[in-house]
Design a protein around this nucleic acid. Structure first.
Lengths: 246, 246
DNA sequence: CGTACCTTTGACGGCTGTCAAAGGAAGTGG
DNA sequence: CCACTTCCTTTGACAGCCGTCAAAGGTACG
């Protein structure tokens, strides 16, 4: 065992406390991490599903092109997240995955996931938990995109990202790194770039936040959370009852 | 083994071919099915997560109330579906689940899911597959609600439901049972009842479909699919590579 | 220092929401 | 089997959030 940790250990360890045997298994299954440039593709649409990737560093996203030519972002993935959880029981990808920034990924083959399923109930449950959290983020975004104003959606997205970053490493809400352009923010929320821009300017004029190219300043956290009407149940890492059954 | 089949066998059997030992395990884990009235609650918001339910007959939905008082439907669940897959790694439910029509449910405890995870890799993979399909439906709805007109969303929903029904039992697209009110259709798609109504009337005037209280007549399948711009990859039950690894 | 990408602004239109009320259909109880 | 109640559908009027189109101004990067 040449390393004491791995990216996926940090992820799955959020939901259950890992035995040493589980940690050893993960270290064993993890292929060599590789670095990857910003904007580089991780997989393409319709390509066969072969691997999952745990993000050691860098930001990534999955997206697809709508028939009308509009690009739609499905997930925003930050360090610690697993890319491909939604896809690994499908034959082909129906999204494309790309890096936003340069970073480092740890690949896991499908076979190693099957190995986990065969030999470690606790890791399997953690995989379910990680899958459910990703699904919950999508569900939340769906419900919110259907009923909230652009401003409220933007506020909600910023708080969600802040909380997710904070789960991985302490982050200040006053100012944090956010390598997402206004254009991409529009593609995430399903709002036109023009309207994103106007909304951001309005929120800046109301002294709520200031978005610059790769970071965000939150100047009035209270106003922001009020607009976001944020309920963070869906981000909860707790899993009480289930872990006792293992 | 007092019965030859169970509702969950039909569900999980879609994704992999089940060994007899797997079938026996499922029959063993399944508690006695119980019947439940239309509109009756299956669980409430914030109640602790205890069970999953496989639908033997009847339709169900999950929903939650937005802060502005609007009700939002998260999933529509038809016979053969599993209720609670998204929730079972959480401590509490953040949706409420109710029947639409009267029906019969087969409950599974969390403990029995853990039993599956511990003892049957193939069933575990099938559970992942079922979870991923439900997630994909949400993802699809999210993407579509963000970029398509009300008419197109309605068309898409009708085709999705038709295809899902058809996966369980042969269904004619000309006319099929659809116990979803216009109001609920609005709550599913995030569109006001008034606008749902106007859109349905417009589609009826264009001789595409006719929705009556509990069923739908599709009079022009081609026009309907054209408007829906339906890509059914996400409903695929195929899972090639993975099952070979088991 | 040019090229590509991102942000910003203005003008304009329309899809969809809200409010309010009436008409039907279904279910319930006497 | 009929009143009554509740839920669902339908219609009209009106407003506004947000999309589209087009173009200019900034900013990063090779």
């Amino acid at each position: 065992m040449y390393r004491k940790t791995s990216c996926i250990i940090n992820n799955l360890g959020r939901y259950i406390s890992l035995e040493n045997s589980d940690k050893a298994r993960l270290l064993n299954l993890e292929s060599t991490p590789f670095s990857i440039e910003g904007k580089e593709a991780i997989w393409h649409v319709n390509s066969p599903v072969e691997k999952l990737y745990s993000i050691q560093s860098g930001w990534a996203y999955t997206m697809r092109d709508n028939l009308d030519g509009a690009r739609q972002v499905v997930d925003i993935l930050i360090p610690g997240d697993i890319i491909g959880l939604r896809d690994f029981t499908y034959k082909n990808h129906f999204t494309e995955a790309r890096m936003i920034t340069r970073g480092t990924l740890c690949p896991f083959t499908q076979a190693s996931i099957v190995d986990i399923i065969k030999h470690s109930p606790s890791l399997t449950v953690a995989l379910f938990a990680a899958t459910a959290r990703q699904e919950s983020m999508i569900t939340e975004r769906m419900l919110i995109s259907m009923h909230r104003s652009a401003r409220s959606q933007i506020a909600h997205f910023i708080i969600e990202i802040y909380l997710r970053l904070n789960q991985v490493r302490t982050t200040s809400i006053d100012e944090f790194y956010l390598p997402v352009t206004q254009q991409m923010l529009g593609e995430i929320l399903g709002i036109s770039t023009v309207h994103i821009n106007r909304s951001l300017i309005a929120m800046e004029n109301d002294n709520i936040l200031k978005k610059s190219r790769n970071s965000i300043h939150v100047t009035d956290e209270k106003k922001l959370t009020d607009e976001a009407e944020f309920n963070n149940d869906y981000l909860s890492e707790e899993m009480d009852g289930l872990s006792e059954l293992l």
